[in-house]
């Protein structure tokens, strides 16, 4: 949680898209930006990139104001996937409320996915977040490519870990919203149990989701 100001009745949340290099994190955000109505969201801010590789982060903010006047701002970030930018990943991961892990479906990338996930686990613990209590959705991206690991196999592996898995092709816009919705729902539920958003601040889950995911 970036900010929770009861006086100003404002909540600022952070959702981080994590994953190995070139798995399509920024593409996910671009697709969300394109598919959602601009009423619920801000502009996509892409900090300096080199040759399409994120070196700092991308940011796509979403806004919601409940009839009660309580405001929720959800900032969606991507991290740079390249191994060398670990410090940046750690900095972005600070105070995250939820994580979407974007994996590359290609057979050849399974080791990279594993390494990146291990890195996520490590960095979460370094910034003081418990991975088993953090809303976490796994997206297997690039389903449109050949030589991808079979969905059945992926589901078998990851469901054992108890994590929700979504198949996607961010480039074609498939599975992107589904992933986002799942992450936001988990995130909302986790916050609701902590803050009683509905009882205390009159924030309705369905209305919130509708508002920020207006297509």
């Amino acid at each position: 949680m970036i900010e929770f100001d009861e006086h100003q009745r404002k909540l600022v949340l952070k959702l981080v898209y994590y994953g190995p290099a070139l798995s399509g994190k920024t593409t996910n955000l671009l697709s969300l930006h394109d598919q959602f109505d601009r009423n619920g969201r801000g502009e996509l801010m892409m900090l300096d990139t080199t040759e399409d590789r994120t070196i700092y982060f991308d940011l796509l903010p979403f806004f919601y104001e409940a009839p009660s006047g309580f405001k929720i701002k959800l900032k969606v970030f991507t991290v740079p996937g390249q191994v060398r930018h670990d410090a940046t990943r750690k900095a972005v991961l600070q105070r995250a409320d939820g994580v979407v892990f974007v994996a590359d479906s290609r057979t050849s990338m399974m080791a990279m996915n594993g390494e990146s996930f291990a890195n996520l686990e490590q960095n979460l613990s370094l910034v003081g977040l418990a991975i088993d209590q953090l809303p976490l959705v796994v997206q297997f991206n690039k389903r449109d490519l050949a030589e991808v690991v079979a969905e059945e196999e992926i589901r078998k592996t990851w469901s054992e870990a108890g994590l929700p898995v979504v198949m996607a092709s961010a480039l074609q816009g498939r599975g992107v919203i589904e992933t986002f919705r799942m992450a936001v729902e988990l995130l909302f539920d986790s916050l609701d149990s902590k803050l009683q958003l509905r009882e205390k601040y009159g924030v309705d889950r369905a209305a919130f989701l509708r508002a920020i995911m207006k297509t």
Binding site: L47, D48, Y56, L59, T88
Partner: peptide, 12 residues
């Protein structure tokens, strides 16, 4: 934002 990340990274 760039400066902030950069500073964080340098600090780390």
């Amino acid at each position: 934002l760039t400066t902030e990340v950069h500073t964080s990274v340098v600090q780390e």
